[in-house]
Lab assay of single mutants.
Amino acid sequence: SEIVVAMYDFQATEAHDLRLERGQEYIILEKNDLHWWRARDKYGSEGYIPSNYVTGKK
């Protein structure tokens, strides 16, 4: 599975969105859409994140 790191904070506005915290790692579950990826955080929460807010883990 692909691990990404959040470059920016993202506040979830929709129920299906996942909040991003800058510097935290997330697991990508689905990339069915170019701009919104389904991800899981370290607490096990899942939701959609803006793909341009994250970068591949170095």
Results as ranks from 00 to 15, higher is better:
1 S>V: 15
1 S>Y: 15
1 S>G: 14
1 S>M: 15
1 S>K: 13
1 S>E: 14
2 E>H: 11
2 E>M: 13
2 E>I: 13
2 E>F: 14
2 E>L: 13
3 I>S: 06
3 I>P: 04
3 I>Y: 09
3 I>M: 08
3 I>W: 11
4 V>G: 03
4 V>W: 10
4 V>M: 09
4 V>I: 04
4 V>K: 03
5 V>F: 08
5 V>K: 06
5 V>N: 03
6 A>Y: 03
6 A>H: 02
6 A>R: 01
6 A>E: 01
6 A>C: 06
6 A>T: 01
7 M>I: 14
7 M>R: 09
7 M>Q: 08
7 M>W: 07
7 M>S: 05
7 M>A: 06
8 Y>I: 09
8 Y>T: 06
8 Y>L: 10
9 D>W: 04
9 D>T: 05
9 D>I: 03
9 D>Q: 04
9 D>A: 05
9 D>H: 05
10 F>K: 08
10 F>G: 01
10 F>N: 03
10 F>H: 07
10 F>T: 04
10 F>V: 06
11 Q>P: 14
11 Q>G: 09
11 Q>T: 12
11 Q>S: 11
11 Q>D: 14
12 A>N: 08
12 A>Q: 08
12 A>H: 05
13 T>W: 10
13 T>Q: 13
13 T>V: 14
13 T>I: 14
13 T>S: 10
13 T>L: 13
13 T>K: 13
14 E>S: 15
14 E>T: 14
15 A>C: 14
15 A>N: 10
15 A>T: 11
16 H>E: 11
16 H>S: 13
17 D>M: 15
17 D>K: 15
17 D>W: 15
17 D>P: 06
17 D>Y: 15
18 L>G: 01
18 L>I: 06
18 L>T: 00
18 L>N: 00
18 L>W: 02
19 R>D: 14
19 R>Q: 13
19 R>K: 12
20 L>W: 01
20 L>I: 05
20 L>D: 00
20 L>E: 00
20 L>C: 02
20 L>G: 01
20 L>P: 03
20 L>H: 00
20 L>V: 04
20 L>K: 00
21 E>I: 13
21 E>Q: 10
22 R>D: 04
22 R>Q: 10
22 R>L: 08
23 G>C: 12
23 G>F: 07
23 G>D: 07
23 G>E: 05
24 Q>V: 06
24 Q>G: 09
24 Q>P: 01
24 Q>H: 11
24 Q>K: 09
24 Q>I: 04
24 Q>C: 13
24 Q>A: 10
25 E>R: 08
25 E>M: 10
25 E>H: 08
25 E>I: 10
26 Y>E: 00
26 Y>R: 00
26 Y>V: 04
26 Y>Q: 00
26 Y>P: 00
26 Y>F: 03
27 I>F: 09
27 I>R: 07
27 I>M: 11
28 I>C: 03
28 I>Y: 03
28 I>V: 11
29 L>H: 00
29 L>S: 02
29 L>D: 01
29 L>Y: 02
29 L>P: 00
29 L>K: 02
30 E>V: 06
30 E>H: 07
31 K>Y: 06
31 K>H: 06
31 K>F: 05
31 K>N: 07
31 K>A: 08
31 K>P: 02
32 N>A: 12
33 D>W: 07
33 D>G: 10
33 D>M: 09
33 D>K: 06
33 D>H: 09
34 L>T: 13
34 L>K: 13
35 H>V: 11
35 H>Q: 10
35 H>C: 15
35 H>L: 12
35 H>R: 10
36 W>P: 00
36 W>M: 07
36 W>T: 07
36 W>Y: 08
36 W>G: 05
36 W>D: 03
37 W>H: 03
37 W>K: 02
37 W>Q: 02
38 R>K: 14
38 R>V: 11
38 R>H: 07
38 R>F: 15
38 R>Y: 15
38 R>N: 04
38 R>I: 12
39 A>F: 04
39 A>I: 04
39 A>C: 04
39 A>K: 00
39 A>H: 01
39 A>N: 02
40 R>Q: 08
40 R>A: 07
40 R>E: 03
40 R>G: 03
40 R>V: 09
40 R>T: 05
41 D>I: 02
41 D>S: 04
41 D>Q: 01
41 D>T: 01
41 D>Y: 02
41 D>P: 00
42 K>E: 06
42 K>R: 10
42 K>N: 05
42 K>H: 07
43 Y>S: 08
43 Y>A: 09
43 Y>V: 05
43 Y>Q: 09
43 Y>D: 11
43 Y>C: 09
43 Y>P: 00
43 Y>H: 10
44 G>N: 05
44 G>Q: 04
44 G>Y: 03
44 G>I: 04
44 G>W: 03
44 G>S: 04
44 G>H: 03
45 S>I: 13
45 S>E: 12
45 S>H: 15
45 S>G: 12
45 S>M: 14
45 S>C: 15
46 E>S: 05
46 E>F: 03
46 E>K: 02
47 G>D: 00
47 G>H: 02
47 G>W: 03
47 G>A: 02
47 G>R: 01
48 Y>R: 11
48 Y>K: 07
48 Y>S: 05
48 Y>C: 14
48 Y>P: 00
48 Y>E: 02
49 I>C: 04
49 I>Q: 02
49 I>K: 02
49 I>V: 08
49 I>T: 01
50 P>C: 10
50 P>Y: 05
50 P>K: 04
50 P>G: 03
50 P>T: 02
50 P>W: 05
50 P>I: 03
51 S>T: 07
51 S>R: 08
51 S>I: 05
52 N>V: 09
52 N>S: 15
52 N>D: 13
52 N>M: 11
52 N>F: 10
53 Y>D: 03
53 Y>V: 06
53 Y>R: 07
53 Y>E: 02
53 Y>C: 13
54 V>E: 02
54 V>I: 07
54 V>H: 02
55 T>Q: 11
55 T>W: 07
55 T>Y: 10
55 T>M: 11
55 T>D: 08
56 G>I: 14
56 G>K: 13
56 G>T: 15
56 G>Y: 13
56 G>A: 15
56 G>R: 12
57 K>S: 11
57 K>E: 10
57 K>R: 11
57 K>N: 10
58 K>F: 14
58 K>G: 14
